[in-house]
């Protein structure tokens, strides 16, 4: 990977708070922020759960509304 595109990747990760980087002279050191990564993963997991639960409710509601679907 060429340096400019590599730097672009770094900037995206940094903007997202997933890594921090520090430049000393010619050397840039990147550090992962596992807490942040975990928080993002967790949030999406919770969103998935929220939609699952929400749609379970909707299944139940639809079953009460549409008699012909009850016998499934």
């Amino acid at each position: 990977m060429a340096l400019p595109s590599f730097m672009k990747h770094i900037r995206v990760l940094e903007a997202a708070g997933l890594i921090v980087s520090m430049k000393v002279g010619r050397v840039r050191t990147c550090t992962l922020r596992p807490d942040r990564l975990a928080a993002v993963e967790r949030w999406f997991g919770e969103q998935r759960l929220l939609w699952e639960k929400r749609y379970d409710n909707l299944d139940n509601l639809l079953a009460t509304m549409d008699g012909e679907n009850n016998d499934e």
Binding site: L49, W51, Y55, N57, L62, M65, D66
Partner: peptide
Amino acid sequence: REFAAKRKLVWDCYTKSELLDQWFAPK
């Protein structure tokens, strides 16, 4: 997500508040 109901019924559940109130929040 697939639902065991006709599209019109599902549409109503999404667009009428008296129906939304019955499912939108997760238990």
